[in-house]
């Protein structure tokens, strides 16, 4: 990161058409290794969840009723909005708007902090009701899935903070734009995992 001062080549920053050129890999090829790895990992958990559900449908339905659909829905809307802000922010970076981009990243960060807050409230409500990770296999999955996802949200939030700082400076080299775009893609992945977790845990009947 400290090589910004070393490398003072003129800014080869992608212009307003960045990402519009056909054949542009979002971020860079390597980040898709991480994204598909993570998505496959979570998909195996989703499959396992539905399999264990099929073994004891009554228990899973009864336990699902304990969850607050309102909180799950609110969190989905928060993450979708944060994804919009990140997409707008990456576009702003591509257009070289160094004042707008950090604000958009911070807006996304605010949404993700809201998500974490609501997740905390939901955990608190469940735990106060005497429900814990070892209550039954539904709640085992519930806490493990949402907990692992929450870990990704927290890592992603740190990333959003870093992106907010970096997007406020002119980019020194093209690889820095690739890193910002890759960071954005990681956040979208966090969003799209929740897009699947929400119906699985809260809506499947």
């Amino acid at each position: 990161m400290d090589d910004l001062s070393v490398d003072q080549r003129p800014r080869p920053v992608p212009g307003p058409t960045a990402g519009k050129a056909p054949g542009h890999i979002p971020g860079e090829a390597g980040v898709w290794l991480l994204l598909f790895g993570e998505m496959s990992f979570f998909s195996s958990l989703f499959t396992a969840f539905l399999y264990y559900r099929s073994l004891d449908i009554a228990l899973f339905s009864a336990s699902q009723a304990e969850l607050s659909k309102a909180i799950g829905l609110t969190n989905t809307l928060l993450l979708l909005s944060s994804s919009l802000f990140v997409a707008l922010a990456v576009r702003a970076v591509a257009q070289g708007r160094t004042t707008t981009a950090p604000r958009l990243f911070l807006a996304a960060l605010a949404c993700s902090l809201g998500f974490i807050l609501f997740k905390g409230i939901e955990y608190y409500q469940l735990i106060s009701a005497g429900i814990a990770v070892n209550s039954n296999s539904f709640f085992g999955f519930y806490f493990a899935l949402t907990g692992l996802h929450l870990g990704h949200v927290i890592i992603g939030s740190v990333l959003l903070g870093v992106l907010a700082v970096f997007s406020g400076r002119p980019l020194a080299r093209p690889s820095h734009f690739a890193l910002i775009e890759s960071g954005g893609c990681f956040w979208h992945m966090v969003d799209l995992l929740w897009i699947i977790i929400f119906p699985l845990l809260y809506l499947v009947e």
């Binding site: 054949g23 979002p26 994804s83 919009l84 997409a87 954005g184 969003d191 699947i196």
Partner: peptide, 19 residues
Amino acid sequence: AFAKVWLVMSNFMDVRGAP
């Protein structure tokens, strides 16, 4: 849900402009 994932991928992650 999977239609939403596709929307996020193609528009927000810009897969629509990808190879």
